Amino acid sequence: MKSNNTKKLRLYIFKSNKHIYANLIDDNTQKVITSSSTISKEIKNKIKYGKNCATAQIVGQHIGVKLKKLGIKEIIFDRGHNLYHGQVKAVADATRKEGIIF
Results as ranks from 00 to 15, higher is better:
Met1Pro: 01
Lys2Ser: 09
Lys2Val: 13
Lys2Glu: 12
Asn4Tyr: 13
Asn5Asp: 13
Thr6Tyr: 02
Thr6Cys: 08
Lys7Glu: 15
Leu9Val: 04
Arg10Gln: 03
Arg10Lys: 07
Arg10Leu: 03
Ile13Val: 15
Lys15Phe: 05
Lys18Gly: 08
Lys18Arg: 12
His19Ile: 07
His19Phe: 00
Ala22Asp: 04
Asp26Glu: 01
Asp26Pro: 10
Asp27Thr: 06
Asp27Met: 05
Asp27Trp: 01
Asn28His: 11
Thr29Gln: 13
Lys31Phe: 10
Lys31Cys: 03
Thr34Gly: 08
Ser35Lys: 12
Ser35Asn: 14
Ser37Leu: 08
Thr38Asp: 03
Ile39Glu: 06
Ile39Pro: 00
Ser40His: 11
Ile43Pro: 09
Ile43Asn: 15
Lys44Asn: 14
Asn45Ile: 10
Lys46Met: 13
Ile47Met: 12
Lys48Ile: 11
Tyr49Thr: 15
Tyr49Val: 14
Lys51Pro: 02
Asn52Glu: 10
Cys53Asn: 12
Cys53Tyr: 04
Thr55Gln: 09
Ala56Asp: 11
Gln57Val: 05
Ile58Arg: 03
Val59Thr: 02
Val59Cys: 04
His62Ser: 09
His62Ile: 00
Ile63Asp: 02
Leu67Phe: 06
Leu67Val: 03
Leu70Asn: 05
Gly71Asp: 12
Ile72Met: 08
Ile72Trp: 06
Ile72Asp: 10
Lys73Arg: 15
Glu74Lys: 15
Glu74Met: 13
Ile75Cys: 00
Ile75Asp: 00
Ile76Pro: 02
Phe77Gly: 09
Arg79Phe: 04
Arg79Trp: 05
His81Phe: 10
Leu83His: 12
Leu83Thr: 02
His85Asp: 06
Gly86Cys: 08
Gly86Val: 02
Val88Gln: 03
Ala90Leu: 09
Val91Ser: 03
Ala92Ile: 06
Asp93Cys: 02
Asp93Leu: 11
Ala94Pro: 02
Thr95Met: 13
Glu98Cys: 02
Gly99Ala: 14
Ile100Asp: 10
Ile100Cys: 03
Ile101Gly: 01
Ile101Asp: 12
Phe102His: 10
